[in-house]
Design a protein around this nucleic acid. Structure first.
Lengths: 123, 123
DNA sequence: ACAACCTACAACCAATTAGTTGTAGGTTGT
DNA sequence: ACAACCTACAACTAATTGGTTGTAGGTTGT
């Protein structure tokens, strides 16, 4: 699998960066809804809503199960918690200045790291 | 001022939906960095990094202050917390779904809810 | 004064996105 | 069987995005 953490985070935040999708997510977290029931709630075509649902599904923020002719969508609260955890990690960075400490202690010369984690000079 | 909550949330999540911007945010949460210092950390043009910083700034996730010829960027942890709070609200919606299921089992008869009487807290 | 540096912004390009309409296939009730 | 319904996906368009290069103005050190 080539799915990196960054890929997952990209998908999460991209999915959340649209108010219609956030609203859909709210509804399916509160309870199961069929795609067509969701579509009736918005002033756009069924296909458009279906695409939004697909984006949320690809990001892992909701799951669908098939019941007869309907596709019932349900929010995945664990995924939502994972996104929240990412932000908590950001807060921790702020609190602890972890990045700066790494630089000061762990790198006598320079740091070999994933894409562009060079040392940012003195200021 | 016509900045709605949705506009703000759109900007937040859009800004976070790019791995370069998330990395920049990590750095400036850990400590102040000049734009050019940031730019040196990534394999792209200065202008590209500057645009990413501008996106984060417009979203309110970082602030810049001018010192001499440098623009020093610093992460705004309060904004990060606000984003986290949005996700917590989403979780609360999900918890409400469980409460309603409880209600369903608990009250086979009638269920006109007197507002805010009970507050089932469990996970 | 002047070269080196830092920032800002415009103009452009390729790729992606959010919407549309249209078509096709599976499910349900009569 | 058939009409009504639900879903999926393709094809298209307009707008946005993430990158580029180029230009211009302010700051610093010699």
């Amino acid at each position: 699998m080539t799915e990196t953490d960054d890929d997952r985070a990209d998908a999460w935040f991209h999915a959340l960066a649209d108010r219609t999708r956030r609203d859909i997510l709210r509804r399916v977290l509160a309870g199961e809804h069929s795609v067509s029931a969701l579509a009736r709630s918005y002033d756009m075509s069924f296909a458009a809503v279906q695409k939004h649902v697909a984006v949320l599904e690809r990001a892992g923020l909701l799951t669908k199960r098939r019941q007869g002719r309907e596709a019932l969508a349900s929010g995945d609260v664990e995924a939502v918690r994972s996104v929240g955890a990412m932000l908590t990690d950001l807060e921790a960075l702020w609190r602890g200045r972890i990045s700066r400490m790494d630089e000061l202690f762990a790198t006598p010369q320079q740091a070999p790291q994933p894409p562009g984690t060079d040392h940012p000079e003195e200021e």
